[in-house]
Design a protein around this nucleic acid. Structure first.
Lengths: 151, 151
DNA sequence: TACAAAGTCTATAGTATAAATAGACTTTTG
DNA sequence: CAAAAGTCTATTTATACTATAGACTTTGTA
């Protein structure tokens, strides 16, 4: 039941990109900078950001002074979207996935106890991940920073 | 965020063992029978049941007419216990695990946005898995069977 | 215009974990 | 004692995850 490194790194990068600068402006960051600040292997991060870009969540600027920035307001990007792009469906077993349904081999799906419970687990997970936006996360981080007096 | 086959098979087997026979008595089943009814490779299932036995959730009887049966009432065995035995900690990232905590490499754990959210996700998952017993599942299955008139 | 800084893209290597298989051993019953 | 059943450990195979490599394109600026 674990999030992959790919997913973890991608989420960390996106959260960083969603955190406005001290003047409250949206930020643009280079791969190298994200890599250093979050301890992520640079070449691995490269692939991850590219995937997020190709999925329409990031925009990029090439050449000198380039970098990555969010393709839309942090408010409109959820953690669930990011995880699905990087790790695939969130469902703990395929037979409860909405988008990637596959039978899981039980004799009778309609009366499969495992399926009933995993359906609930999936709902509990997506209930958080699909409702939490990057803005929500960024605000929680900033609130916590203020609380601890760390800038 | 997927349950392994090992975990899935183990849960399926335990649910079967928790379902009383038509006379309402606890059942004892042989590896082969579980394997056939649930389409689980017999040698793989063998390992899984053994692990559950060694963890104290199952008892077994060797020799002719032997088999596996629950070590305690279905009421007292939760899905969370089973999953932890077979798949390890439930937490989506190690840094929010209660029993198997490990730092996850973020610069400052106290203000890590990912950690905050994953903490909630973990709670949502364990809230279901640690509160749902084999009896709960077995009852849901039987209710559903009655509803569909399938015996 | 040339060069350096940055992202793009695809391939491949390495590693870990999951899944499955094998086989020899022990216990129990008839 | 023979057959039925669980026990135990090792090994193989497959797959997915993680990471690295390197050649390519775009853009700003000296």
């Amino acid at each position: 039941m674990r999030l992959s490194k790919r997913g973890e790194y991608g989420l960390r990068a996106m959260i960083l990109l969603a955190t406005p600068d001290p003047q409250g402006r949206a930020v643009m960051l280079q791969i190298r900078e994200i890599s250093e600040r979050e301890n992520i292997p640079v070449k691995f991060l490269e692939q991850i950001l590219l995937a997020l870009k190709n999925a329409g969540l990031l925009h990029s600027k090439m050449g000198v002074g380039g970098g990555y920035y969010l393709a839309k307001p942090a408010r409109e990007i959820t953690l669930g979207q990011i995880i699905r792009i990087l790790d695939g469906p969130i469902a703990p077993v395929k037979c409860v996935s909405q988008v990637a349904y596959e039978p899981c081999g039980c004799p009778d799906e309609a009366t499969c106890g495992l399926r009933m419970v995993m359906f609930d687990v999936r709902a509990a997970m997506t209930n958080i991940l699909d409702k939490t936006s990057l803005e929500d996360v960024s605000q929680r981080v900033q609130a916590q920073r203020a609380l601890l007096n760390r800038e």
